[in-house]
Nucleic acid binder design. Structure first.
Lengths: 211, 211
DNA sequence: TAGATTGTTAATCGATTAACAATC
DNA sequence: TAGATTGTTAATCGATTAACAATC
């Protein structure tokens, strides 16, 4: 099996599209419908499904409910994922305050910061001292962590998370982190995203196309 | 020329790595140094450079300063990029308050929201009513916009931006937006990023590897 | 049955890597 | 010069797409 990141991203998109189609009253979908909904091709959709042993009915397409169930199962949406956020500054507190993750089955249970002015253990989502991160993670068996601390602190915070037992990290600090092989790290680098956007805007202006 | 998004992302990474190496006192670099710094291969680095007509000295590597200058030029870092943010909620205000973009040459000059409680025209980065977005963009000749409004408002806000003359959009709303051909849209979908992370964490747990 | 769609294999496309002649 | 590194071409690898037999 050759499952890569792009493939799983597509699975997430199919899943999200299915919910929209469901709201529109669909009961079954064809690979062609899904391809349209996510801007792909029907062959890609069928290929992705076959990689995960998802099958439909020849001529009848895919049953929405069983398909959604299978996708949710593959994507681990069948259980609530407890997550913590390190850093309660701008981005950290935005993530903690963002309620959009709940309906995705992602529950941010606590934040951590080194700045005592930001600590608030009584808040709806409590903010603890960074010194409590490792034990909290260990006792609450947290597997997913989000890093939203300044660059200079990011590696140190990652080490704490790993020591506590965290298995996967979403990293907003624009530096590359070192971690043991079995730790999964996904980086979100907003500066690079903007830089990229600017390049292609300029390319369109220069050449009339995206080259 | 076949310039794709991945390639430009690598250019950004080279550029960032060069600043770090510069701080370490490097005056020239070899493709091998850069490959190590960004986790790539020397062939990839040289290939990328050759696509943009960047050349070094055989045996002498690349001169840091001229290389940085060329990369900054390609990436449009030679001029300040004025940007606006639509939506001053959790994520929008985090972006507005984040000072990390300044050193990247990205200047968030204003925010916009529909909620009058969030409007503050006297703030360091003023927050205006959404109704002023289009004219502001037009008069200030803003080319880059960031969408951080709820899903239900995102398409409408995008339309306003495009009418005002914005050319590129970084979209945080987890829906797919429709825009004219020449408008560049980059999506950042944090839900999908987390979902992806969870999948690979589970994959490591199941199989001991990332499959 | 006839017709439409799946599931899968083969073909194509594109991106990465290897290799090496050119050359500083 | 000898040695090391670039620049580029060719080979490989992987992912997407096309095509079509299977079949509901």
């Amino acid at each position: 099996m050759k499952i890569n990141k792009q493939c799983i991203i597509r699975l997430s998109r199919y899943k999200n599209a299915l919910y929209r189609l469901k709201n529109l009253g669909f009961v079954k979908v064809f690979s062609d419908n899904l391809a349209d909904a996510v801007g792909s091709t029907s062959a890609q959709v069928r290929k992705d499904f076959s990689l995960f042993g998802i099958s439909g009915n020849r001529r009848g397409g895919y049953q929405m409910d069983t398909l959604l169930e299978k996708l949710n199962n593959i994507l681990g949406k069948d259980k609530l994922q407890k997550t913590i956020v390190a850093g309660a500054g701008n981005i950290g507190s935005a993530l903690i305050g963002y309620r959009g993750f709940e309906k995705e089955g992602i529950d941010i249970v606590a934040g951590f910061d080194i700045d005592s002015a930001l600590i608030n253990e009584k808040a709806e989502t409590p903010i603890f001292s960074l010194s409590k991160l490792k034990d909290f993670v260990k006792h609450s068996k947290i597997e997913i962590g989000i890093i939203a601390v300044p660059d200079s602190a990011a590696q140190e915070v990652l080490d704490l998370m790993v020591e506590g037992g965290i298995k996967g990290v979403l990293n907003f600090a624009p530096i590359s982190l070192r971690a043991p092989e079995h730790i999964v790290i996904n980086n979100v680098n907003l500066g690079i995203e903007l830089e990229n956007l600017i390049y292609f805007v300029n390319a369109v202006e220069r050449t009339g196309s995206r080259e």
